[in-house]
Design a protein around this nucleic acid. Structure first.
Length: 108
DNA sequence: CGTGTGACGCGAG
DNA sequence: CCTCGCGCCACAC
């Protein structure tokens, strides 16, 4: 059985599964969705996709805030800080907050 | 059905 | 730590 879920649907599923206060990267989501080199596509889906999903929990490889987030980086920062994520110099501590669906990390 | 992206990633300087 | 350049590829139109 091939993957019955389209890339985009897989992205939706993954983004929707990110716990509050945790983060995932575009590349990581792309890889888990079955297309490791489509990180940019995830960004595109974030732009055109369902605005209800917690896109604020998706950041780039370095933890930097999304340049195209509705309302700009400021809005992105506010959304994350609401979940307790501390942003410093436009960057989130991705190393500590990254969420891995297949791996339960010990309590922080 | 062809074309142009881009909320990315990564190497190199 | 920073900037610059280019390959990538599903998606919107």
């Amino acid at each position: 059985m091939e993957n019955p879920v389209n890339f985009r649907d897989a992205v939706y599923m993954l983004v929707g599964s990110i716990p509050e206060g945790r983060l995932m990267t575009y590349g990581q989501i792309a890889a888990l969705a079955g297309s490791p080199r489509s990180a940019r596509i995830v960004g595109g889906i974030a732009h055109y996709g369902d605005p209800v999903l917690p896109w604020q929990r998706v950041v780039n490889r370095h933890g930097y805030l999304a340049s195209g987030y509705p309302g700009g980086r400021t809005a992105h920062q506010v959304a994350l800080e609401k979940e307790g994520v501390v942003i410093r110099r436009q960057r989130a501590p991705i190393e500590k907050l990254i969420w891995w669906p297949e791996q339960i990390l010990p309590d922080l």
